[in-house]
Each structure stands twice: as structure tokens, then as C-alpha cells.
């Protein structure tokens, strides 16, 4: 976490850059909603809220976490990590949590400032929705950290990590529902997005926040997330051991 505070301005800017798309999306949907009152069950009020909070959530576990995980492997620093009597996957997730506190706070601040000044964001659907939203965000955070961890393992085979980072960020921004709510996706894409764990990062928390998901539907959504989390947790531990055994370390 202290590493993260050291480069305050950089961190702020990196998050602000991703918010360029908040303005693009806002403008696009603003124009789109002029023609119709509701699109795929979303009103303009809900859509505004969705766009802004989605980017706030996606700013959690941003570039720096991935960059750091990949850097550890790329520079061979991983050997040092391995001498520690701790589970590598768990330490990486914990580091991610530390870094994310800062990114999260900055993202949250931006969301609150933009939300109150320009976006006229809606409050959560109910108190219960607010509590479940926080829970879903935490689960989503862990899922994202684990997914990035899994991708970072690919660094055992590549030299630079930039391409991987781009690929990962783009796939996440689509399949998590950050760019567009899952309900509005074309059928083929929606089927994929609904099954995969990435929806837990943005889409599921927001559906709860907006009260789009009630009763058994909500239970099902949360169960899916927790289930995926368990699977990823076990799988990532196995995967990194397998990856580590498979390849030699650069210059090692």
C-alpha cells in the first residue's frame, strides 16, 4: 500500500485517463435516450448511475496491480518471493488488496465528485441492496485479482507484458459489463458474459445496487459469484505451480 501512495499523481492520472470513457459513454447514451425512454429495461437515470459506478468499480485493481504481478515474474524477482514461507498466490492477492485501497479511494473520490456535480447519480435501491452491493464488490474484487493473477502467469512465456495487459483490460471491460450492461449485449455475447466470472466485477454489484435483481434471481447471482471465486482460488494455486515447474526463469 505504501508503494502505491508514493506515486500519487501518477495514480490519479492513470485512473483519470480511464474516465475519459465515462464522458464518451455519458454523451452517447444521453443522445440515445433522447429517442426512447427506456433501453433494455434501463432508464436514463439508471444508465447514468451505471456508467459512472461501473468505471469506479473497474478502477479497482487497475493497471498497477497487473503490472506489478507481471513485473515480479518478468524480472525474475519471483525467486525471492518463493523463498518466503507463504503461499505465492495469497501474497499476490494481498498485495493487490493493498494497492487497490489507494486506487479504490481515488476512484471513489472521482465517482463521488463527478456523481454529485455532473451525473446526478441515484442512491442504492434500498438499504439491503447497499449492504449486498458492498459484499458483491468484495467478491468481485477477489475474482478480478485472481483473474489478473492467472493472466500474469502467462508472463512466464513472454518477455514484455504490455500486450497481455491490454488484452486483459479489454476483455474485462467488455465481459464485466463495464462498457455496456449485460442486458444490452447482442445474444451471442450475452450468453458468454452471463456464464463467465467476470460479470461479478461490475455487472453483478450494479444490478444489486440498482435493484434490478430481486429474490431468487439475486441469490442465484451471488451464488454464482461465490462459486466462481472458490473455483478460481483453488485453480490459481494449482496453475501457478504448474506454470512455475514448466518454465525456467529469465536469467535464472
Amino acid at each position: 500500500m505504501q508503494t502505491a501512495i508514493a506515486y500519487r499523481v501518477t495514480a490519479l492520472f492513470q485512473i483519470a485517463i480511464t474516465f475519459i470513457w465515462v464522458f464518451i459513454l455519458y454523451a452517447l447514451w444521453d443522445a440515445a435516450f433522447l429517442e426512447s425512454g427506456a433501453i433494455a429495461g434501463y432508464t436514463w437515470d439508471e444508465m447514468r448511475t451505471y456508467i459512472l459506478i461501473a468505471y469506479g468499480l473497474n478502477a479497482l485493481v487497475g493497471w498497477r496491480v497487473g503490472g506489478q504481478m507481471m513485473g515480479t515474474i518478468r524480472t525474475g524477482e519471483i525467486t525471492r518471493e518463493l523463498t518466503r514461507p507463504l503461499n505465492y498466490r495469497s501474497t499476490q492477492v494481498a498485495t493487490a488488496a493493498g494497492l487497490s485501497v489507494i486506487e479504490g479511494v481515488i476512484g471513489l473520490l472521482l465517482v463521488v465528485i463527478l456523481g454529485t456535480l455532473f451525473f446526478d447519480v441515484q442512491p442504492p435501491d434500498s438499504v439491503r441492496a447497499a449492504i449486498l452491493f458492498v459484499f458483491a464488490v468484495l467478491v468481485g474484487f477477489l475474482i478480478k485479482a485472481l483473474c489478473i493473477f492467472l493472466v500474469s502467469l502467462l508472463c512466464f512465456w513472454t518477455l514484455s507484458s504490455v500486450g497481455l495487459m491490454w488484452a486483459q483490460q479489454s476483455v474485462i471491460s467488455i465481459l464485466s459489463g463495464t462498457l455496456i450492461p449485460i442486458a444490452m449485449m447482442p445474444d451471442w455475447l450475452r450468453l458468454v458474459a452471463e456464464v463467465l466470472p467476470l460479470r461479478g466485477i461490475v455487472s453483478t454489484p450494479l444490478q444489486i445496487y440498482l435493484g434490478k435483481s430481486q429474490g431468487w434471481d439475486l441469490v442465484g447471482l451471488l451464488a454464482l459469484q461465490v462459486g466462481w471465486l472458490a473455483v478460481l482460488w483453488v485453480f490459481s494455486d494449482w496453475a501457478w505451480k504448474a506454470a512455475f515447474n514448466a518454465v525456467e526463469i529469465q536469467g535464472g
Binding site: 440515445a32 429517442e35 426512447s36 433501453i39 433494455a40 462498457l179 455496456i180 449485449m185 447482442p186 455475447l189
Partner: peptide, 8 residues
């Protein structure tokens, strides 16, 4: 693509 799936 998704956006224009919803509006013309």
C-alpha cells in the same frame, strides 16, 4: 455493435 443493437 452492442449500442446500435439497441438504437438505430
Amino acid at each position: 455493435v452492442a449500442l446500435f443493437g439497441q438504437i438505430n
